[in-house]
Amino acid sequence: MSSPRNWRGMPQRYRLEAAKCKKCGKVLFPPRLVCPECHGREFEPTHIGNTGKVETFTVIRVAPSGFTDQAPYAVAIVNVGDGVRILCQVADVEPEELAIGMPVKLEFRKVQSDGESGVISYGYKAVPVF
């Protein structure tokens, strides 16, 4: 990931910043310019929750470049409340432990790195809560 692209996503990936539509109340993560629900264009800043439940998941066993060292790893859709579902990796879990409905929290992790000398991209990953 290029450094500018990495930088643009920091408010969402580092601090889970979202936008709440002033017209219909829908929470958008990441924020958008136009609300897909009511086409409203005014938002107030908010944050999504840092806990949630796994809605569905898959296990990646043949990983793309940059992720091969982590295989097998899980990618899940996590419901964090307020109607928001996010797609993220699940860390600190064995594939056979994963289950729909598993409670998770979002932790700050390395997501990818632009080779050995490029910028490191940080963000959130889900980890199980036991």
């Binding site: 060292d69 982590q70 990796q89 860390a91 390395k110 490191i120």
Partner: peptide, 9 residues
């Protein structure tokens, strides 16, 4: 540390 953990995380 896991492969996705470092001093910063």
């Amino acid at each position: 540390p896991g492969p996705d953990q470092d001093t910063i995380t």
